[in-house]
Simulated scan of single mutants.
Amino acid sequence: MPVTTVAGLLDAHDDHLRSLVGRVLTRIRGLCYVGDGERCATLPVVLEFAEARLELAAEGFDRLYVSRDELAADPLPDTDDQDDPEHEVGWADLIRPELALLVGATVTAVRVLEHDFRLTAPDGGLVEAWLLGGLELVFADGRALLAVNSVDALEVTAGVPGSGSWRRTALDLPGQDQRAPDRS
């Protein structure tokens, strides 16, 4: 079931997301095209940690699918069952250099991301809203992993924590106000 708001994400997944703080990222996997190894951005990504997994996919402008330990992220499936050989997919490690640097790093914070959506209506009026955009995992080494909805696609990148024009809601450690927005 997708979530479309920060409150909905926190209601459904707050404990699991906060439990990632202090864990080491051990692997990043995605469904990739068998022919060229490129990740299919419309399909899930699995972030593996010691004794935990986070599974993510995105759809539309603001829908984020989050699950834990539900997907069978095994090696390549039997591609004979897939109809179009050019679009056969299978699980593979995402080994882009910027993501590989995050493997082995410890999560120090998890932040929910929102983006400022603006649309000019046919009548000339402006429609504006903050839409659920994704997640930012901050690591002890000063890097961050961003998993963001890029209109029907989940983009996974590495960068500097707090970069970009996202509105962030930090999930803090137990005993702190986990819903206090971090407007960095």
Score class of each variant (00 low, 15 high):
L99E: 03
V107Q: 02
P85N: 02
T120Q: 14
E98S: 10
L56T: 01
V21I: 15
R168W: 11
R27S: 13
V34L: 04
G175L: 00
V6K: 03
E128N: 04
G37R: 04
I28M: 12
L131Q: 06
P181Q: 06
S165R: 09
I28V: 15
S184G: 07
Y33T: 05
R96W: 15
R27H: 13
A72M: 11
D152Y: 14
V110C: 04
V160M: 08
P122D: 15
A153H: 09
D80Q: 14
S163F: 08
G37N: 07
G125D: 14
V112I: 04
G134Y: 02
V6A: 02
R68Y: 07
R179L: 00
E48V: 03
D182W: 13
F139H: 11
L20N: 00
T79Q: 08
P122L: 15
A92S: 12
V46M: 12
D78W: 05
T42Y: 10
A41Y: 15
G124C: 09
L64S: 05
E48R: 05
A129V: 06
V89T: 14
E136M: 10
D78Y: 01
L76I: 15
A57W: 14
E48K: 02
L132D: 10
R167C: 05
V3R: 06
L9T: 00
I28L: 15
E86W: 08
A12W: 03
E155Y: 07
D93W: 07
G125F: 07
G164C: 10
G124Y: 09
P44M: 10
V66R: 01
H13L: 05
G162I: 01
Q82L: 02
V45W: 08
R118W: 03
D182N: 09
P75V: 04
Q178F: 02
V156E: 02
G124F: 11
T26A: 15
V34I: 11
G164T: 05
D80R: 15
S19A: 08
D141K: 07
V127H: 08
A7L: 05
M1V: 07
I95T: 15
G35C: 11
P2E: 06
V24S: 15
D93C: 11
V112G: 00
F49L: 05
L47N: 01
L10G: 01
N149P: 01
M1T: 11
D36H: 14
R118G: 00
A92D: 13
G162W: 01
F61P: 00
G142C: 11
E59C: 14
R23N: 04
G175F: 02
